[in-house]
Each structure stands twice: as C-alpha cells, then as structure tokens.
Amino acid sequence: MPLLEISVVPVGTGDESFSEDVKRAVEVIEQNGLNYRVTPTSTIIEGDIDKLFDVAQVIHLNEIKNNAKRVVTTIKIDDRTDKPLDLDGQERKVE
C-alpha cells in the first residue's frame, strides 16, 4: 500500500506555531480512516493512492481557508510494486 509523506507550511498567519495546523490535518486523515504517523517535521499516511491525493489536497486547501497568505506543501510518495509496503512494516525494519 502506498505511503505519502506530507509537510505543510502556512505562511503569513501571524503565528509561529504549527500545532493547530497539524491537528486539522490529523482530523482529515482520521475522517478518511487512514493509518498515519505524525513526526516532528511531517506526517506519513498509508492508503490507496487516489485517497492519499484527495486527503493531501484537503489538507493543503484547509490552510488557505484558515487565512494563510501562502502555503508551501511538500509531498513524497513511496509506492512499491514488487512487494507489500506498509507503515508498520517499515517501522519494524529499523527497530
């Protein structure tokens, strides 16, 4: 199953903290029933590729709706076709 890493940086909000932005993103992910991990600099989401893109779009657009003057969103996708890939398995490999 594909993994998507997303990092969203809202600019021009007048607030240096991102915690409320991360909470909003996590709500979107949870509403879509996806497995995820929040890291200090990004969030990793596991799911169907189409749903991952839809969720990433909603997360990005939510920042604009919350009055960010500019939003910089970075996305990485890890999608293996030769063997199964999942978030838990990737974590176990490095423990």
Rank of each mutant, 00 (worst) to 15 (best):
D48L: 03
T41F: 15
D79V: 06
N67H: 11
V28T: 15
G14A: 10
D86G: 06
I44Q: 04
V55L: 12
D82I: 05
G33W: 02
L61S: 02
K93S: 15
D82K: 09
T41H: 09
Q31T: 04
P40D: 11
I64F: 05
E95D: 10
I44T: 15
V26N: 09
S7G: 14
A68C: 07
V72R: 01
L34A: 07
V38P: 11
T43F: 03
V38L: 12
T74N: 03
A25Q: 10
T74C: 01
M1I: 12
K93Q: 13
L61M: 03
E5D: 11
I64D: 05
S7P: 10
E63L: 01
Q57C: 11
T43V: 15
E95P: 00
V72E: 02
G14T: 13
I75R: 01
N62W: 01
L52V: 12
R37E: 14
R24P: 07
P2V: 11
F53K: 10
A68D: 07
E91K: 13
I44W: 04
S19L: 14
T41G: 09
P2M: 12
L87T: 06
E91H: 08
G14F: 09
K23C: 02
K51T: 15
G89R: 10
I29N: 07
A25R: 08
V55C: 14
G12P: 10
T73N: 13
V72H: 02
D50K: 04
I6R: 01
D15T: 12
V11F: 11
S19H: 10
D79M: 04
S17T: 06
E95A: 03
I77C: 06
V55K: 10
E20D: 05
Q90V: 14
D82W: 03
K69W: 00
L61K: 04
P10M: 07
I75D: 02
L85I: 13
A56H: 00
K83T: 15
K69P: 06
R24M: 05
Y36G: 12
K76V: 08
G14L: 05
V58W: 02
T13L: 02
A68V: 03
V28N: 05
I29S: 07
H60D: 09
I29P: 08
E5V: 11
F53T: 09
R70N: 13
V11D: 07
D82N: 08
K83R: 15
Q57G: 08
Q57P: 01
T81F: 14
N67W: 01
L34E: 07
E46G: 00
E27G: 07
D88W: 09
I44R: 06
D86R: 12
S19Y: 13
E20W: 00
D15I: 13
P10H: 08
